[in-house]
Design a protein around this nucleic acid. Sequence first.
DNA 1: AAGAGGACCAACCGCGCGATT
DNA 2: TAATCGCGCGGTTGGTCCTCT
Length: 286
Amino acid sequence: MGRSPCCEKAHTNKGAWTKEEDERLIAYIRAHGEGCWRSLPKAAGLLRCGKSCRLRWINYLRPDLKRGNFTEEEDELIIKLHSLLGNKWSLIAGRLPGRTDNEIKNYWNTHIRRKLLSRGIDPTTHRPMDDPKEKVTTISFGPAQEEEDVDDEKKKMIPQDSLPTTTTVKQEYSTSPVRRERCPDLNLELRISPPYQPNNQQPPLTFTAGSAPGSLVNVDNTTVVCFACSLGIQNSKDCTCTTNGNGCYATGSATANAITSIAAGYDFLGLRNNALLDYRNLEMMN
DNA sequence: AAGAGGACCAACCGCGCGATT
DNA sequence: TAATCGCGCGGTTGGTCCTCT
């Protein structure tokens, strides 16, 4: 039963890496580049599991790692991103150049959790802990559960027609039967990719409220992209785009309402002004 | 000075997912 | 369609260092 082991455990080293192992790994990757981690240890002359090599490289040896203490700005960004994404450490790390998911995860568990607790904020829900009546408004694009599961009391407390549009983000993204997930937490099920690029010259994506599904969006005055591509789901089943370098042609099926809702949620979470999240890098999960 | 306990962080483990066969 | 492979992710562990008593 179960998967076959990723490597021959009987003949691999475990535990802390030696300087010599580090040097071998660095030399090999410099010469051959990343990739094919499974065969790397043997090729590099390392008695290590491929996964172990990958982890060592990504978390410790990569030349672009920042290392050192987190700044106050990084702290706040992590908190914001965590409130938006939850424990999606790799996605959070993607917005912090030079930081790794493992590093951020450790930092969260050792510093930020405590910091939020000392502020009286629940690090899981990002809500004040001393207000038991505080109800969480679920924002979900994920797979769904019974709508009737929604707490009746919650419905009473939050009149649906009185909510600002920024909180009514419970749009269905998929075309699956109408079942809605009941989440204790914020669960946007978003993926951000590719990694942040400091020299990114692209203008911010502009959303047009009420656009039809699959419609093209004017990014600036010259570039036109479809919603699916702007979300990074080009070539998925949701997108039949082709591009000639000037923009996308044809359509994606992600609904404009869903996109508008994401934008609303984004603003709702207070991330709009820091200009660090870019919708072109957001990818919808199914 | 020494031991206990906590904090920190590198590394491991198991699992999920997409690609390939 | 199912099985397999390889990668990447999040949770957890264990070793080391630091602080307190």
